[in-house]
Structure formats: C-alpha cells, structure tokens
C-alpha cells in the first residue's frame, strides 16, 4: 500500500482570465520512507502540485489518497487535523508568524493540536537545539537570518512527527552553503525518523543526491 497516491489529478489556474493547465491527469505513488525530489521549470506547477499533495489546494478532478483514504472527501475539521498531524510543510520563504518567538513558532502545531504547553515547549526546545538554534529560542522571526528562520520552519514542520514532509524550495532563498545545511538536515530526518519527504527544488545537483527524482513538465510527471 502506497502512503500517498495521486489518481488522475487535473489542476489549472487562471492568469489574467486565461486558463493554464498545470496538471493533466497526473498519477503517482509515493511509498513510506521515500525521499523524493521534484524538479521542473519555473511556472511548471511544482508548488501547486505540492499544495494539492498537502490538501492546501483542491484539484479540479481526480483524487489524492492517503493510506487509501481519499483526503478531499473529509470535512473541514478532518482536513485540518490531517494537515496538522500528518503533513509537515516547509515553504520557500519561512512563513513564520511574526508575533511569536522561535520557540512558540516551533511549538505552534502542537498548540493547535491542544497539547499541553510546557510539554510542547520542551520538545520544541529540543528540536531547536538539533537544528543548531538552541541560543535563539526567544528571538522573533524579524531578528533571525534567512538560514536561521528556515531552520526554525523545518523544526516547526517536524514538531508533531508527521508522516510526510513537503518542502517547497526550502533553499531557494539561501546561499549554497546554508542550503546544503538544510538539505543535510532533511536527509538526516528522513534517515533517522523514516519521515517520507517530497522536496521541490531548482538545484539539479541537490536533486540528484536524492534517491528518487521526479520531473514535472507539460502537465505530466515523469521519473528522471
């Protein structure tokens, strides 16, 4: 049984009233514990594909199954819970909440799940230590550098030990050295905790270092 499968998904978006088809009947299986990279030209629809995978955007047709369960037929509360507990997101820019400290940002998914605050903060602190930010827990996002903020965002995505990690060009805004650090972390997480990860990237060398490589072009996904 595949962890995540996509069945015949169509998706288009509208730019200046013109329809642009970005997914034309994509079908795909992702097994538990896989580390997958997804490459493609700008505007090919890599982000949209990731959003559909993570239930942030609904496809026009087709189904997304998680452990053979169609995710888009769940109601609002169930979808929210699914996003909260099963999926961890890392975006191109960190998207941390500016009013909260690094620690609170990392603990946020646990708080949303209504976990006890002290327990959540303790684990969040541990995660921050792991990504090398033990000394910046009480800083707000505005006071962190790009690389630091992205590492906080990664810690936030991992705080509830999700089954799937979806990363959308997590190193796109970073210099190569810092970016390599983030990729290193991703690989570690995949290896140590068995978290399935799908990483969208521009960087061909980084993509090549992943065990499984996908390419999105012309609305179709192919193994590269």
């Amino acid at each position: 049984m595949a962890l995540l499968s996509i069945r015949n998904v169509f998706k288009s978006y509208f730019l200046h009233g013109k329809r642009i088809d970005i997914l034309r009947g994509v079908s795909l299986d992702i097994q538990r514990g896989e580390l997958v990279s997804l490459v493609g030209a700008s505007g090919a629809g890599k982000s949209t594909f990731l959003h559909v995978l993570g239930t942030l955007d609904a496809p026009a047709a087709g189904e997304v199954l998680f452990e053979d369960r169609p995710v888009f037929s769940m109601n609002d509360a169930e979808i929210a819970e699914f996003r909260n507990q099963t999926i961890g997101f890392v975006f191109q820019s960190h998207f941390l909440l500016p009013e909260f400290t690094a620690l609170e940002n990392v603990a946020m998914p646990a708080l949303i799940r209504r976990q006890d605050r002290t327990g959540a903060y303790a684990y969040a602190r541990e995660l921050l230590e792991r990504v090398g930010l033990g000394h910046r827990v009480d800083h707000r996002p505005g006071e962190l550098s790009g690389g630091e903020a992205q590492r906080v965002a990664l810690a936030r995505a991992l705080v509830l030990k999700p089954a799937v990690l979806l990363a959308d060009e997590p190193t796109g805004n970073l210099d190569p050295a810092t970016g390599e650090g983030i990729h290193q972390l991703l690989r570690e997480v995949n290896r140590e905790q068995g978290i399935t990860a799908v990483v969208v990237t521009h960087n061909e060398t980084l993509a090549r270092s992943m065990p499984r490589r996908l390419r999105l072009a012309g609305g179709e996904v192919s193994e590269a």
Partner: peptide
C-alpha cells in the same frame, strides 16, 4: 492574510 494561510496550513480549521 499570510498568517491566516500559514495557520491553516499548520492545521487550524475554519472554525478556529
């Protein structure tokens, strides 16, 4: 707006 989107991605339902 951005924060609302992030909160939703982190799993806050509409009611929240």
């Amino acid at each position: 707006r951005k924060e609302i989107s992030v909160l939703k991605a982190l799993g806050v339902p509409d009611g929240g």
